[in-house]
Design a protein around this nucleic acid. Structure first.
Lengths: 185, 185
DNA sequence: GTCTATACGTCGATAGAC
DNA sequence: GTCTATCGACGTATAGAC
């Protein structure tokens, strides 16, 4: 069971940084140090590994966001903490890259895992918006669902801007702009 | 010169919808109806075709945004028109997908073309923010650079949300949330 | 569970004739 | 400019021994 974990851990990082379709089983074997026989024993198909990776990366991201928000007193502050998710944007989002991979979208199992990951993130943010409205830190005029979606989109878009321009500062500008819009209410 | 154009036109659509690294020369030949000999005569390397595609898709997008804004009286209305860019988000952004393609980022020529495309879009939006401040439709307290970056990020993120969840409505929610934040100023 | 060997297609391109 | 033939490497596995 130890080699299985090594495979998943390597694939999580490689699919995240280099993409699912553009990372080969052979590269995962090399990175994890696991031999071919062992690799195919644990993961007879690439889809199986991909699904496990999307699921785990989704959970990792959700937990990271929750950890970043923990202890902050108001909903508004917790939302602003979420905007910091794009602080190392050149690495790419743990799950965002899968959404532009045709090989992922063509596979119902992977698409399904991806949808769950994004839905859970959006739900979390939506609840935080509601909490902010209850604690008085956010105006009750905001629609929780679309506000949460907009903030999630800003962060995902910030990753894209940074990678497209090659500069972290592009992501920083985007989140700063969102922060200003949110605090200028 | 006619076959050359056919190749570029096919590649523009296929790289856009299916990704650069995951689309092979053979697929472009099949889609364009151009034979292998002709294909490699015009584009000896995939990088050359990729660069031309990124450049043209970037220009196409810029022109589409300008056309959508044309005739609108205030800067604020022109910005809101830009948010409609994510109206067919399941197709993906004409240029956004390249930012998550490792094969693109590893190639200095492609990375450079991509950077130009995003920079030009950001510059356009930045100018529109300034115009909105001059015509009184946007508060002068906004920072044009970061506000433009945030709006561009929302739209790019909206494409990601739609593709990840498989639903256009996810993109609509994001742009609606951004619109509310922008008009609630 | 892990190993080595093998399979069969595709990728991105080159060669040489017309 | 376009055609067909060919190339070496890689992608995604499968087979069968240990």
């Amino acid at each position: 069971m130890d080699n299985r974990r090594r495979i998943v851990d390597s694939a999580k990082r490689m699919f995240w940084r280099n993409g699912y379709s553009t990372t080969s089983p052979k590269q995962v074997m090399a990175d994890s140090g696991v031999g071919q026989g062992s690799y195919y024993h644990h993961f007879p198909s690439k889809t199986g590994l991909g699904k496990e990776v999307v699921d785990e990366n989704g959970r990792d991201l959700l937990e990271a966001v929750q950890a970043a928000m923990a202890g902050l007193p108001t909903g508004r502050e917790r939302l602003l903490a979420f905007l910091k998710s794009a602080d190392s944007a050149l690495e790419g989002c743990r799950v965002g890259g899968f959404a532009y991979d045709a090989g992922v979208l063509a596979d119902p199992e992977l698409q399904s895992s991806l949808r769950v990951a994004f839905t859970e993130l959006a739900d979390l943010l939506e609840n935080v918006v509601r909490e902010g409205q209850e604690d008085g830190s956010l105006p009750s005029s905001l629609d929780p669902v679309s506000t949460a979606a907009a903030l999630l989109a800003v962060v995902e878009g910030a990753f894209i801007l940074a990678r497209a321009t090659g500069q972290q500062s592009s992501a920083d500008a985007a989140t700063a702009g969102a922060k200003a819009l949110l605090t200028g209410l």
